[in-house]
């Protein structure tokens, strides 16, 4: 971990982090604009839901108050003015600040995303390694069929089946909600983790297959290094970059895309909040939550980038030697030296 701290302290890394943070600005602008325009294009708006009993005059006043008598870009501009001041707005439906609503739900989503990624890692990496080592055998084909199954099973179906089996029949876990502590997390995490596991198993297998044929692995074996060490130290370490990439991507997906799982298990996360807000045309809540999710995903990607350097000495050398110059291409040897 001292590698990581030395990397983060490095000037080059500071610049890199700053660049990534600045990149968030167009992402936030894009996401928020898209949400505003898309919500506006749907029939009906949130004020029509709020002012159900209003006379046309009262409705006109309400529309004027919230800028719904002007273009969507005007409302978007107003929203962005607030956002610059750190204000994500106030939900039309819940009558509460969106940031407060988001932060109330975030811990549940983080727990679910974290647990599902752990489920996926614990299952997929050994499975992927085993499949690669047994390339072309029954184990390999079986692993790939398993991965394909994980990819093909829709979360809502798998979730319901797990609930029927483990909750309704066996009474091992609650069928939903977040009131039974860690037990509440098990079924949603397995549901979400199964899909993630499938992608990660396939990536681990193909990455390991690439590495397993390299000369340095053959050399290690020739030197009498035990097979376990060859695979763990020389094989897996070198195959980790694509695996870390896919973990980062899948974690981002889990954070933003747990909507179905959260709904099946009535799990009180951000995804469920967004779905309810979409149903109610609560643009402010949807936009605020999506902006926060985009920021969170970008932070995770940044963390993944830092992790690359931790596991890969070649990349670490780039950051720690400070020899990389803008506009000057570098050549990296397989031994990690920068030329």
């Amino acid at each position: 971990m001292q590698f990581a701290s030395s990397i983060i302290r490095n000037d080059n890394m500071h610049k890199y982090i700053l660049r990534r943070v600045l990149l968030l600005i167009p992402i936030i602008l894009g996401v928020s604009l898209l949400v505003f325009v898309m919500t506006d294009s749907a029939e009906g708006n949130v004020l029509q839901l709020i002012g159900d009993d209003y006379t046309p005059q009262q409705m006109a006043e309400l529309m004027h108050e919230y800028g719904y008598d002007r273009s969507v870009l005007y409302r978007y501009g107003n929203y962005m003015k607030g956002l610059v001041r750190g204000n994500l707005g106030k939900s039309f439906i819940y009558k509460r600040p969106v940031l407060e609503l988001y932060l109330q739900r975030l811990p549940a989503t983080l727990k679910l995303a974290g647990a599902s990624i752990l489920v996926a890692i614990v299952l997929s990496i050994p499975l992927g390694i085993k499949a690669a080592r047994s390339h072309g055998t029954l184990i390999d084909n079986g692993s790939m069929v398993l991965a394909l199954l994980g990819l093909s099973m829709p979360n809502y179906w798998l979730g319901l089946m797990l609930a029927v089996l483990f909750s309704q029949k066996l009474h091992w876990f609650p069928s939903g909600g977040n009131l039974a502590g860690w037990k509440s997390l098990v079924l949603p995490a397995i549901t979400l983790g199964t899909g993630l596991m499938a992608t990660m198993t396939r990536t681990t297998r193909s990455s390991m297959l690439d590495v397993i044929r390299q000369d340095y692995l053959r050399t290690a074996r020739a030197k009498g290094v035990p097979e376990k060490v060859v695979i763990r130290k020389h094989g897996l370490r070198n195959a980790l970059i694509p695996i870390i990439t896919i973990i980062g991507t899948e974690l981002g997906k889990a954070l933003g895309g747990a909507v179905v799982t959260e709904n099946v298990f009535s799990y009180p996360g951000v995804g469920r909040l967004i779905i309810e807000a979409v149903n109610q045309r609560d643009t402010i809540t949807v936009t605020g939550c999506l902006i926060m999710t985009a920021v969170l995903v970008a932070v995770i990607q940044l963390f993944v980038d830092i992790l690359y350097a931790v596991v890969d000495p070649r990349l670490r050398a780039q950051y720690t030697t400070g020899r990389r110059k803008r506009g000057k291409k570098q050549q990296i040897t397989t031994q990690g030296a920068v030329v």
Partner: peptide, 15 residues
Amino acid sequence: ISSASSRLIALQNDE
């Protein structure tokens, strides 16, 4: 709990 099926499972399970 928005889903009727989930509500029933929760009832059967005494949740």
